[in-house]
């Protein structure tokens, strides 16, 4: 562990120094780094079963191939990121196969069932846009060298997912009719999910260890704005209604509902007339969404039995 104090480390980072090894870190830095990497790794991993579920209804061989390519990329990104955690002294195998479903740190959006190929398309357009927004920030700003370098490949591949989502969203909306209606239905629950993805607004929570150590460079609200500034125009250009617009006076995107609001996962429906507190949101997240266990199980299902057999048990 570093002999530097936390303050000295922060100053060094402020001057643009990149941290390369655990020896240079303070306890606080390492803890914050592990936390942010775990969220990324778990998000990449849990997107795979969720996208797979949707890929099962792909309408052609080409679309199925694209979907599987996205799934493979996500598994690959998870692998890269768990490896970073292993380099920090965590046990990769335990992280993937040993934890309980509720211990995974993926956002609530990946605890939801993606039931159709159309939902996959919108997930690629909205959720992967959230992913790129969240990972583009550390790629530019992070003080942890190995993470920054790993994001070159990850961010480029995420761009392919995004393009996949956006191109199909446009094509299906141009086709109109049932295809467009399905996109609208998916957007209705997935857009507010994306808004929530970026967490608490800055006026409630501004200074975090992640910002102080420059693990990332932008605040929740700044990131949310970046996301909105991509997703709202995209949706509008497709003729898809989303509850947000650009406010000329404030020169930023604003939501057309009181944020945050209640969500009914069984109906996949946001209750825009039921604003809730952030404590209630955290409670919902903590309770986990309906597919948390199913997705984690799909990754862990065979590990224990197979390993036991391999090692001579039954």
């Amino acid at each position: 562990m570093a002999t530097l104090s936390d303050e000295a480390l922060k100053q060094k980072i402020e001057k643009g120094h990149l941290i390369e090894t655990t020896e240079e870190m303070t306890e606080g830095y390492k803890k914050a780094l592990i936390q942010i990497l775990l969220v990324q790794a778990d998000t990449e991993l849990m997107s795979a079963p969720s996208y797979y579920m949707a890929a099962r209804s792909a309408p052609s061989m080409n679309t199925r191939l694209s979907a599987y390519a996205v799934i493979q990329d996500e598994l690959g990104h998870a692998h890269i990121t768990y490896q970073l955690l292993e380099d920090l002294g965590m046990d990769k195998e335990y992280l993937i196969y040993g934890r309980k479903p509720h211990e995974f740190k993926n956002p609530y959006g990946f605890d939801q069932p993606l039931e159709t190929w159309v939902e996959l398309v919108v997930a690629n357009a909205y959720f992967d846009r959230a992913g790129i927004t969240l990972l583009g920030d550390p790629f530019e700003n992070t003080s942890y060298g190995p993470w920054k370098r790993s994001l070159v490949k990850i961010d480029k591949e995420e761009l392919f997912h995004l393009r996949h989502g956006e191109v199909w969203m446009k094509r299906l909306c141009e086709a109109g009719g049932q295809a467009k209606e399905e996109i609208q239905r998916a957007a209705d629950w997935m857009f507010p999910m994306g808004v929530e993805w970026f967490g608490m607004p800055d006026h409630l929570k501004r200074h975090t260890a992640q910002l102080e150590y420059k693990l990332k460079g932008k605040t929740n609200d700044e990131l949310r704005q970046i996301w909105l500034s991509a997703v709202v125009p995209l949706s509008e250009s497709c003729g898809i209604h989303v509850p947000a617009h650009f406010d000329e006076a404030q020169q930023e995107y604003v939501l057309d509902y009181e944020f945050p609001v209640d969500y009914d996962p069984s109906q996949k429906r946001w209750k825009f007339d039921s604003p809730v507190s952030w404590d209630q949101v955290f409670e919902r997240w903590k309770k986990r969404g309906p597919y948390n266990e199913i997705y984690v199980k799909s990754i862990q299902k065979h590990y224990k039995d197979f390993m036991a057999m391999l090692n001579g048990g039954n």
């Binding site: 191939l65 694209s66 390519a69 191109v167």
Partner: peptide, 8 residues
Amino acid sequence: TACPAIDF
């Protein structure tokens, strides 16, 4: 052969 991006 499995190129997922032929379209693009």
